[in-house]
Amino acid sequence: MDDLKVIEIKKSVFADNETDANNLRKELKDKGIFLLNLMSSPGSGKTTTLIRTLDLIKEKVRVAVMEADIDSDVDARKIKDATGVESIQLHTGGMCHLDAEMTRQGLDNLDLEETDLVILENVGNLVCPAEFDTGSVRNAMILSVPEGDDKPLKYPLMFSICDVVVINKMDVAPYFDFDLEKCKEYIRMRNPEAKVIPICAKTGEGVEAFAQWLLDEVAAWKVSE
């Protein structure tokens, strides 16, 4: 047992997932399906925002939802009851994120022939979901006002991979010393390309801007090479 042999690997732990994710994206493109990966902290209002958004888009695009959580199916039920949109629950088995393989298993449970857009509500977490590509076409995140305007500084990776940052609970901004302009500036520092959309999911204010962004992206993806 004294002599030891070294086998070099020199490989990123994320490499296999990145390959899986790229393959999944290609397959989805062939099938004409747009996958949106929606991320945020727990309690930012992802499900409420999603319900509002679905009400605005469900007549215009064939949409289905995959809810990822560590446990329970409360979110999938809530979505289905509130909007009538097909919604399935994925359990991550204790894992704090979804990877491309888990996303694929979820997609296998949907009727993809009848779908143009799949929205994946990732596990509430600003760290791990940013590191694991799900195979999505676009990444969106929701930051809610009580979390603070400095979140982009604390979780730089999450903000740097998102195409759109929705800022929710704008109605309570005065109570939390939340500075929207400062927050936008911090987001730009991490990601100059990110679109920022302030909303209030409770009243529905601003949600149509997010819905329109999504519909435009789905339409552009369908005709892209």
């Binding site: 002599d3 070294v6 086998i7 070099e8 690997i9 020199k10 490989k11 990123s12 732990v13």
Partner: peptide, 10 residues
């Protein structure tokens, strides 16, 4: 976050 190598008994 990279695996550099593994060491195994000869």
């Amino acid at each position: 976050v990279e695996i550099e190598s593994i060491t195994v008994p000869e």
